[in-house]
C-alpha cells in the first residue's frame, strides 16, 4: 500500500516540475531560456517513461529513453548553432 503512495508521489513531483518548466518556457525572456526549458522538459519525459516502464513491467520502453536522450542532445546542439549564427 505504501509502495503505491511512493509511486504516486514520484509522479506528483515530476508533474509539478513539468509545470514549473513550462512556465519558464512561456515566460523566458529570450530564446536560450526557452531552449534550456525544453531541455529540462525532455529530461522530465525521460523520468516519466522510466516510471511507466517499471509500473507496467515492460522494459521495451528503456530503448525509447535512449533515443530520447540522443534527440535531446542533438536538438540542443542545433539550437545552439542557430542562436550563435543568427547574430
Amino acid at each position: 500500500m505504501s509502495t503505491v503512495l511512493i509511486w504516486n508521489l514520484t509522479l506528483a513531483f515530476l508533474s509539478l516540475s513539468f509545470i514549473l518548466a513550462f512556465i519558464r518556457l512561456i515566460k523566458g525572456p529570450r530564446l536560450p531560456d526557452r531552449v534550456v526549458a525544453l531541455d529540462l522538459i525532455t529530461i522530465l519525459i525521460i523520468g516519466f517513461i522510466t516510471v511507466y516502464a517499471a509500473r507496467t513491467n515492460q522494459p521495451v520502453f528503456l530503448d525509447v529513453v535512449t533515443i530520447l536522450a540522443l534527440i535531446a542532445f542533438l536538438g540542443t546542439v542545433a539550437f545552439a548553432y542557430y542562436i550563435e549564427r543568427r547574430i
Binding site: T3, F13, S17, A21, A54
Partner: peptide, 27 residues
C-alpha cells in the same frame, strides 16, 4: 519498495531542477 524509493529520490532532484529553472534570476 527499493525501486520506488530510488525513483522518489530521482524525482525529488527533478523537482529541484524545476524550482531552480523558475526561481533563478539569470540564464
Amino acid at each position: 519498495l527499493l525501486t520506488a524509493l530510488i525513483m522518489l529520490a530521482g524525482s525529488f532532484f527533478m523537482l529541484m531542477a524545476g524550482i531552480g529553472i523558475l526561481r533563478m534570476p539569470d540564464l
